[in-house]
């Protein structure tokens, strides 16, 4: 089933529409997909994210989530129930001083009965591996842990889509790994549709599909491998290759007979193979 559909969507932050943050974007995301949206600062990727759950509504064109039009205010609540969103700053998302109260916030808003909320908190904290922190204070947690709590807060609403708007950008490498592991698990084990907005190319490699945005437009759309094998095109959009892919390309250019590799593991394997041959 189609989870998200953009039809010729334009969005402008300016009244006179002299500049579009999102310019004539058409795309569709299937339920259960793991899509990474790449782009440099100002490419319109965050605007795209906010258009999905009706935090913004298109200036022209149409966005629909499971067939519901985001421009229809009567549908806003239903859309937000099915499309949850985690933001960039881990400090600015929690509403309560205690973890379980914060996770309860979403279910409370949609009117879940009390006993059921307790179960959902268990479920959500387990899903992000934070079950031991139920009574902790978010302010004492690390950035990665705070983001996992923010994800749990979204999971507790039981959405079908999870949008992560640069949710790893402010984290250290450890926190980034924690969050990515949780997101991948949600996608694999619960079939959650994931839309991951990022400027870390390594993270895009974990997705099934990558979309590159540039100046408000979708300029590339395909598997991460497909996209990273077009390094020249990426360069024009001011994006770099994942480090391993970059080294691989340099080695190839220097005359080493190795195949394509995108992750460190793949690269190591390719190098070993070529050494054994030689």
């Amino acid at each position: 089933m189609e989870a998200v559909r953009f039809e010729h969507v334009k969005y402008s932050y300016r009244e006179d529409e002299s500049e579009y943050a999102v310019n004539d974007v058409s795309l569709s995301v299937e339920e259960g997909e793991f899509v990474a949206i790449l782009g440099r600062n100002g490419s319109g990727k965050s605007t795209l994210a906010k258009l999905i759950n009706a935090l913004l509504t298109p200036t022209s064109g149409k966005v629909s989530v499971f067939g519901l039009d985001t421009s229809d205010e009567k549908q806003t609540f239903a859309i937000r129930k099915s499309a949850g969103m985690v933001f960039q700053n881990p400090d600015n998302q929690a509403v309560a001083s205690i973890v379980e109260d914060d996770v309860a916030f979403g279910p409370e808003n949609i009117g879940v009965p009390r006993e059921e909320i307790g179960k959902r908190i268990d479920f959500a904290l387990n899903a992000v591996g934070m079950q031991d922190f139920r009574n902790a204070m978010p302010s004492r947690l690390s950035g990665g842990q705070k983001q996992r709590i923010a994800i749990a807060g979204v999971i507790a609403i039981l959405p079908k889509i999870m949008i992560l708007d640069e949710s790893t950008a402010m984290l250290d490498p450890q926190g980034r790994r924690e969050v990515m592991a949780v997101v991948k698990k949600l996608n694999r084990e619960q079939g959650m549709t994931v839309i991951l907005i990022t400027h870390f190319m390594e993270e895009a490699l974990q997705a099934e599909r990558a979309i590159v945005m540039h100046r408000g437009e979708v300029v590339m759309d395909g598997t991460p491998e497909h996209i990273f094998s077009h390094s020249d095109a990426l360069e024009t959009y001011n994006l770099t290759l994942p480090r391993a892919a970059y080294i691989c390309k340099k080695l190839q250019a220097a005359g080493m007979p190795i195949g394509e590799a995108f992750t460190a593991e793949e690269l190591a394997e390719e190098i070993c193979k070529s050494l054994q041959k030689g």
Partner: peptide, 26 residues
């Protein structure tokens, strides 16, 4: 700026005032 972010995060978590809201802790 934080208030702005928090407002977005609350809306994204379906906040719409006290209407139809339940309470976890009694």
């Amino acid at each position: 700026r934080r208030a702005d972010d928090l407002g977005d995060a609350m809306e994204a978590r379906c906040y719409r005032g006290s209407k139809g809201r339940t309470k976890y802790k009694k």
